[in-house]
């Protein structure tokens, strides 16, 4: 179990740049999906917009409200981004291209994304603002709902592979990508992943139409930027994990190198996340709960049961 220290710096820089590009790309793609143009003024195709956004956020007044819990308020966005960056440690980008090849890689991912929720929760609590508190509350309730079937939905993959190791999960998909035998698990994990990334339609903790901006109402300047980077990082991370678990990770025909295949598939899922935001309305709070507990959890358990039975039969 060696640690690829050389990979850390490029990965952190790459992930941050990816989040920066996403700020522009999401606005642009969302605009195209809504028959608009989006930011197209600065530079070719408007890519200068991300630099402009960055400069704006850096030079903005970084204000901590006097009624907020100063220490927790400052640390919460750091916790979100740190947890998300840690999650990238176990993603195998190509054969051997990973920071750490943990035997419990999948569990590590689940742990890190759960930790990121604490950042959201504490941000909502420390802001000492009613909208932020409501956002934090929703985040907590949402986490309790989806973490259960998120963990269970990928157990089918673990049964088929016999390992929690991400690289081995990818190698086990050389014959057949897991989204075919694990279609139920894939759908459930996708929904859980959207909820995990606080993306529309499950952006209840933010819910800008009801809660101002939810848990990050009081944030400004670079702290706000960190919250947003955390959100975009989780979009990238969730897409990367979906690709790794269900769409064969770096696997693909030989005419392109593995890293390109991985990036292409991940990019496709990022675009799908944007499409979801453009198309699907946000469910009500209790609708999300009942969807999670009454529909998705039974589906996951059924999937787990059938997968286990089939694997046992195939062995016996």
């Amino acid at each position: 179990m060696e640690v690829g220290f050389i990979m850390i710096l490029p990965l952190v820089v790459g992930a941050m740049l990816g989040a920066l590009v996403l700020v522009w790309w999401e606005r642009r793609l969302l605009a195209f999906l809504q028959d608009r143009l989006g930011p197209n003024r600065l530079g070719p195709f408007g890519v200068g917009q991300m630099v402009a956004d960055l400069i704006k956020l850096i030079t903005k007044h970084d204000w901590v409200p006097p009624f907020a819990d100063r220490v927790v308020f400052t640390l919460a966005p750091v916790a979100i981004v740190a947890a998300m960056l840690m999650g990238f440690a176990i993603v195998p980008f190509a054969p051997g291209w990973h920071i750490i090849d943990l035997n419990i890689g999948l569990l590590f991912f689940l742990a890190m994304t759960s930790l990121a929720v604490y950042g959201v929760l504490l941000a909502g609590l420390a802001s000492n603002n009613k909208y932020s508190l409501l956002g934090g509350l929703r985040s907590a309730a949402q986490m309790v709902t989806y973490e259960v079937f998120m963990g269970l939905s990928i157990m089918g993959v673990v049964i088929l592979t016999g390992s929690f190791n991400m690289s081995e999960i990818v190698r086990a998909q050389e014959d057949l990508w897991f989204f075919i035998p694990q279609v139920l698990g894939f759908v459930v994990f996708l929904i859980a992943g959207i909820a995990e990334a606080h993306r529309a339609p499950f952006d209840l903790p933010e819910a800008e139409h009801e809660l101002v901006a939810g848990f990050h109402t009081e944030y400004s300047g670079m702290k706000f930027a960190l919250v947003m980077v955390g959100e975009y990082l989780s979009v990238i991370l969730t897409s990367a994990i979906i690709v790794t678990l269900f769409f064969g990770g770096w696997l693909g025909p030989d005419f392109l190198p593995p890293i390109i295949w991985f990036s292409l598939k991940t990019g496709l899922f990022i675009c799908f996340f944007v499409l979801l935001r453009a198309a699907i309305p946000r469910p009500r709070y209790d609708q999300l709960m009942s969807l999670g507990w009454k529909i998705l959890l039974p589906i996951t358990l059924l999937n787990l049961l059938v997968t286990g039975a089939v694997v046992l039969l195939a062995k016996g």
Binding site: L33, D35, A279
Partner: peptide, 14 residues
């Protein structure tokens, strides 16, 4: 979802 996706290929109103 599908109908919104098709709007990717529609011309812009802007």
């Amino acid at each position: 979802l599908w109908k919104v996706f098709l709007h990717l290929f529609a011309s812009n109103e802007t």
